[in-house]
Structure formats: C-alpha cells, structure tokens
Amino acid sequence: MNLHIYLGLLHQGEQTLAKSFRQVSEGHGSEPDVHFLCQSLAQQCDHHEKLLLPIVQQYGQDSSADEPERLHAEGLSKTRSGPVGLLRDLQDLYLLASLVDVTWTMLEQAGQALRDRNLLAVVEHCQKETKVQRRWLQTRMKQAAPQALIVAS
C-alpha cells in the first residue's frame, strides 16, 4: 500500500501552506484585509494537520524516502513587495492550496476504496475549507490584478 506517500505529501503540504499564509500575513500586513485573515487560514491548516494525525498513525507516512524531491512544493520563504508582489505571493499561495486540494481528492479516492469512514470524514471537513481558501485567494487576486497590472508603479 502506498497511501503513506500521499499522507506524507498532504501533511507536508498543509504545513507548508500554513507557514506561507503566515509569511504573507506578515509581509503584506499593510493591506487592509490580509493580515488577520491569513492568520486565520494558517490556523485552519494547523487544524487540518491535527485531524490528519490519527490517519497518519493508522497508515504511516513517508515524507522523503522514495518520493522524488520535485513533488514537494516549496513554501514562500519571503514575501515580495508592492502591488505586483502581493499578486505574485497570492498566486503562489493559490498554487500551494491547489496542490493540497488535489491531494485531498486523491486521499478521498483511496478512502472510498478502503471504505474508511474516519478517513472520509476528515477529508470532507478539511477539503471543504481548502476549497474556500482557494476561492478567497481567487477573489482577492481578481480584485488586485487590474490595479497591480495597469496603474501601479
């Protein structure tokens, strides 16, 4: 069984996403809505990690071993500055959140085949929130893009 590879991916993905939300929260704190909201979203990721623990305990996780390094997305190590910088950072968050989202989908597929109700309950709760994170990022980027790309210096 290779489920542990995906559990490792997911665990790490949520960790990276949480760290990156915190990075953006600090780096773009001057935006009126970014600071506290990204803190809240980081907390959601923390919570997902916690909910994953019993599943990880059951199936194990593999965060390095045979997994090619390139499948792990790097988080944001620092934020860019300015309007375009904000847009790029939000877009990076969007990519990270999308990776987490689709990883949850794979886990859900496995859970269905395993008929593991506990696993499916965790997926249902967490993925719903991940999808909202993606939607918020998209809403926020759509709002920021025209100003950043056309009139910002």
Binding site: Q143, Q147, A152
Partner: peptide, 20 residues
C-alpha cells in the same frame, strides 16, 4: 464589473501606494 467594487480601506491603500 470584473471584480467586487473596491472597499474604502482599499481605496486609501491604493492612494497610499500611488496607484490612485
């Protein structure tokens, strides 16, 4: 109509950054 209308604090933020 391409995105939500800009809220007040964001208008001032754009002015702060010099795009408004």
């Amino acid at each position: 109509h391409w995105a939500p209308p800009t809220h007040a604090m964001q208008i001032f933020r754009y002015a702060e950054q010099g795009s408004i």
